[in-house]
Every structure is written in structure tokens, then in C-alpha cells.
Design a protein around this nucleic acid. Structure first.
Lengths: 163, 163
DNA sequence: CCATACACGTGAGTC
DNA sequence: TGACTCACGTGTATG
């Protein structure tokens, strides 16, 4: 335990986060800068992995801070609480609006066809199209806010399966 | 270090969370149930406080899990990432709608007056009203989703200042 | 002093 | 097996 380097304090970077949007992980310090021969600073791969995990969580926490107003100088629990309130309010409001304008949100449906002479305005129409299959798919479902993200994920999964 | 009680593992309560909405803090174990005379289980007040802090954060994390679909069996970082996507999507959608129906979101304004013979339909109109001042305030601002919460907070702050 | 909030490394699980 | 989670207690800074 004595030979471990320990960053002697943590620093509040909330102000930097608010001003610089490219600021992601505050406390990544290059190891070679702090190496001293008086104490052979040994990092376990375990502790490094754990630090990476903490950094990932804190990066998302910082991202959340930028989305929630007046959330700087809140502690983690309060920030998270504001986040759930935010999501609840936005969802409730979205539901009210779609009810007020009675936008239909029924009948999930998936359809597809294979048009024979498709002429897409993009590229990828030349020689390499002979070993590709074009399918046009249409999806109709409740427009949940994450539906696009999920579709992307599913399509990437299909691509991966085809190897 | 040897005399400390250590809960030997952490458990995945995601299924319980999904079925029981009153489920908040999974891993609070009554201390008297695990007390053994073979090891005098000593909790520092420090470690207890830290546990309370962790529990508060994790409770909000569980609340967030219930709001985000398909977020069970995600780790903390992924859950948080989905949360920020969710908030971004909802905010973007709300902005699109208010732009499509051009709802005016301008001119923040605060006004107030002191009506002389106000007759509120609630209570608190009898003897104790002689040392109270009634002020009617009206606020007009952009209807951010958290505006009501913030108003409550500000009003409570005013009450606290008046002691 | 006391309380609170954070990063850290570690033990112990899962896959 | 190793790579990945998580809870835990501790050191440390801040009010």
C-alpha cells in the first residue's frame, strides 16, 4: 500500500466543464509525468481498469450536467435526481401534446419490398452492386425518443451477423 | 480491517426493480441480523455515511432505469449514456414542436402587487393574518420543464430567510 | 471539531 | 483464464 501513487486530491472542474465542451475526463494525468524514483509507482491492471470505469461514468455525469440547468455545484445524487425529474417532466409533456393534437400512436408495423430497378441518388450503384441485395424496409411504430438509436443498433447487428 | 463486516457480494436486483415499484435501496441489511459475537462488527461513522451516499446515488440510478426502456442489464455507464441521449432527444423534439406551432417563448417577466382586501378561499384568514403580508406574484417565462421545481425551491428559500 | 462529497484501490462476483 | 462489473472502506479536501 505504501508504494502506490495516490493523487493527493481531487479537483472540482465544474467551471471548466461549463466553459469548454471538449472537456471530458478531468483527472487523467499522464503517468510518466508523476513517476518518481523514490516510490516505484505500481498500477495494478485491476486498478487501472477500475479507474477507466469510473472515468466513463463521470464523463456521462458531466454530459448530464450540461443538459440540466442550474446543476453545477450539485452533488452526484442531486444531479441524478434532477435528471429523473427532467425526464419525467419531458415525457409527461410529450404525452400531453400528442394527446392534445391526438397524434395516432397505434398499430406497430414492419414492411419491406425488393424493388428491381432502384436508382438511388447516392453512390454505391456501380460494379459492387452485383453481390449486394437492396431491400427497402418501412417501419411504423410509436415514436419513442430512442427509437432511432435502437434502429441503428439493430441494423448494425444485422451487418455484423452477415460478417 | 479484520473486524469489519463486509457483505460478501453484491446482488443483481434488476428483476425486483422492474416488478416492484416500491423497491428503492436493495442492499440495506439490518445490522442486528448479521451481528455475530465471533467478530464485533464495527462500523465507522465515516463508512456509514459513505454507504448512505452510495445508496442515494444508486437509488436515483434505479429510478432512472425505470424511465429508460431496455436499460435493464445495462451497466452504470451505459445507463447514463442512454439517459443523456434520452434527454437530448426529448429536448430536441420539444424544441421542434414549439417551433412548428410557434409558441412564443420570449420576454421573461416578474410582477407583483398587494391587494388590500383579499379573501382567499383557503384557511389562514383569521387572527393570525394580522402579522402576515399577502403578496400576489405572477411570473412569466419560458416553460422549461423544471421551472416549477425551481420556483418551489426559491419560495422555500424565502421562507427560510424570514426565519 | 463535525458532516459531507469525492477518487481511489481492493475483494469478490459474473461471463 | 482474464476482462469486466459492483460495493466497500479509506484518505483527503471542503464547509
Amino acid at each position: 500500500m505504501e508504494n502506490y501513487y495516490q493523487s493527493s486530491s481531487w479537483t472540482d472542474f465544474s467551471d471548466k466543464v461549463s466553459n469548454d465542451s471538449s472537456f471530458i475526463v478531468p483527472w487523467t494525468i499522464p503517468v510518466e509525468e508523476i513517476a518518481e524514483d523514490t516510490a516505484t509507482t505500481v498500477y495494478t491492471s485491476h486498478s487501472q481498469a477500475e479507474k477507466r470505469r469510473r472515468d466513463r461514468i463521470n464523463a456521462q455525469l458531466s454530459a448530464l450536467r450540461e443538459l440540466i440547468p442550474t446543476s453545477h455545484k450539485m452533488d452526484k445524487a442531486a444531479l441524478l435526481k434532477s435528471a429523473v425529474e427532467q425526464v419525467k417532466d419531458l415525457k409527461r409533456k410529450a404525452a400531453e401534446i400528442s394527446k392534445a393534437f391526438n397524434i395516432p400512436t397505434e398499430m406497430d408495423e414492419v414492411d419491406w419490398d425488393r424493388p428491381q430497378d432502384i436508382n438511388p441518388n447516392g453512390s454505391r450503384q456501380g460494379n459492387d452492386s452485383k453481390d449486394k441485395i437492396f431491400i427497402r424496409a418501412s417501419v411504423c411504430c410509436d415514436d419513442r425518443p430512442e427509437v432511432f438509436t435502437e434502429l441503428i443498433k439493430i441494423l448494425k447487428g444485422l451487418k455484423a451477423k452477415h460478417h
